[in-house]
Simulated scan of single mutants.
Amino acid sequence: MSQQPRYWAVIPAAGAGRRFGGPVPKQYLAFAGRQVIDYSLAVFIDHPRIAGCVLALSPEDEWWRETAYAAHPAVQRVAGGAERSDSVAHALEALAERAAEDDWVLVHDAARPCLTRLDLDRLLEALRDEPVGALLAVPLHDTVKTAEDALGPRVEHTLPRQQLWRAYTPQAFRLGQLRQALLQCRTEGLAITDDASAIEQLGLRPLLLEGRADNIKITRPEDLPLARFFLEQQQEQQLR
């Protein structure tokens, strides 16, 4: 491995946001004076240790050109895929042309605009001696139930929450290893919901790094005002 691996950001943004609804994908919604995706990208573009960003967009995307970073030299655009994992794989393929196999790739959701510089710094620091990779996550404090759908649904049983975490992003892994993991999952027909899931299929155990709970993903309409509130609170804290 190289002595000084570089750090790259990959942003899968080809989704249509079906759960959110509306004619505009959620990553392009107006948000605190900009668009959601502008905030999601800014924390990486403004960071001196991030070598560049690869953004996977739908070929039919008609909103990207109106964003703050549409012409930014640090952002490379590639065609996304049908699923999130396909978009990440396409971005990694493009990145492999200029990055090393042992470079770190930080995959971040386009609709997660409240990532703080502090959490990003902590993640980068955690990778210094990390053999597998790491992801931001938050311990689960709610009581979690499993359901028997045939009954209504009704509660089947309660899960012990002591070992349960909410997986957030960024999730950081070596470029070569993540490409291998995604290829294996695709070959075996495995559906994965995040990049850590693919790495786990290799028998590896990524590090869970506790991050801020306000690093939420905008999924439903009620998430947008909540994310705006969190962002305003973060900005006020920076001014103190």
Rank of each mutant, 00 (worst) to 15 (best):
Pro59Phe: 00
Gln201Phe: 02
Leu190Gly: 04
Gly80Thr: 01
Val105Ile: 06
Ala82Ile: 04
Leu224Trp: 04
Pro59Leu: 03
Gly22Thr: 14
Glu222Met: 08
Gln237Lys: 12
Leu120Glu: 11
Ala68Gly: 03
Ala227His: 09
Asp102Ser: 11
Pro59Asn: 05
Arg174Leu: 02
Glu62Leu: 15
Ala111His: 14
Gly22Ala: 09
Pro160His: 07
Glu130Leu: 12
Arg166Pro: 02
Gln237Pro: 00
Asp194Tyr: 01
Asp129Gly: 02
Val43Pro: 09
His90Lys: 12
Ser40Ala: 15
Ala14Met: 13
Gly22Val: 13
Arg6Asn: 08
Trp64Pro: 01
Ala110Cys: 03
Thr158Met: 00
Phe31Met: 06
Leu120Phe: 09
Lys217Asp: 05
Val107Phe: 10
Arg34Tyr: 07
Thr146Pro: 02
Leu175Arg: 00
Leu135Tyr: 05
Leu140Lys: 14
Pro5Leu: 12
Arg212Cys: 00
Trp64Lys: 07
Tyr69Gln: 03
Gly52Ile: 00
Glu101Trp: 10
Thr143Leu: 03
His72Cys: 11
Arg220Asn: 10
Pro160Tyr: 11
Gln171Tyr: 01
Leu29Ile: 12
Ala70His: 12
Val78His: 00
Val75His: 05
Pro131Asn: 12
Pro153Val: 02
Arg166Tyr: 15
Ala150Arg: 15
Arg174Glu: 07
His141Thr: 14
Pro48Lys: 14
Glu210Lys: 11
Leu55Glu: 01
Ser40Val: 09
Thr67Gln: 08
Gln27Tyr: 02
His108Ile: 07
Ile199Val: 13
Val24Tyr: 08
Leu190Cys: 02
Gln201Tyr: 15
Tyr69His: 12
Ala96His: 09
Ala100Arg: 02
His72Ser: 10
Gly33Asn: 04
Leu140Phe: 02
Trp63Ala: 07
Asn215Arg: 03
Ala150Leu: 15
His141Pro: 01
Arg220Ala: 01
Asp194Leu: 01
Asp119His: 00
Cys114Ser: 06
Lys145Gln: 11
Gln237Ser: 01
Ala32Tyr: 13
Thr116Asn: 07
Glu232Gly: 13
Leu202Asp: 06
Val107Ala: 04
Glu60Gly: 05
Lys217Cys: 13
Asp46Val: 00
Pro170Glu: 01
Leu183Arg: 14
Arg49Gly: 14
Gln162Gly: 08
Arg179Met: 07
Ala82Glu: 12
Val36Trp: 07
Thr116Cys: 04
Arg228Cys: 12
Tyr168Ile: 06
Leu135Pro: 02
Thr219Asp: 13
Leu118Ser: 10
Lys145Arg: 11
Arg19Glu: 09
Ala79Gly: 01
Pro5Arg: 11
Arg34Asn: 05
Gln237Ala: 13
Trp64Leu: 07
Pro225Phe: 10
Leu135Ile: 03
Thr143Asp: 08
Ala94Ser: 15
Arg6Met: 00
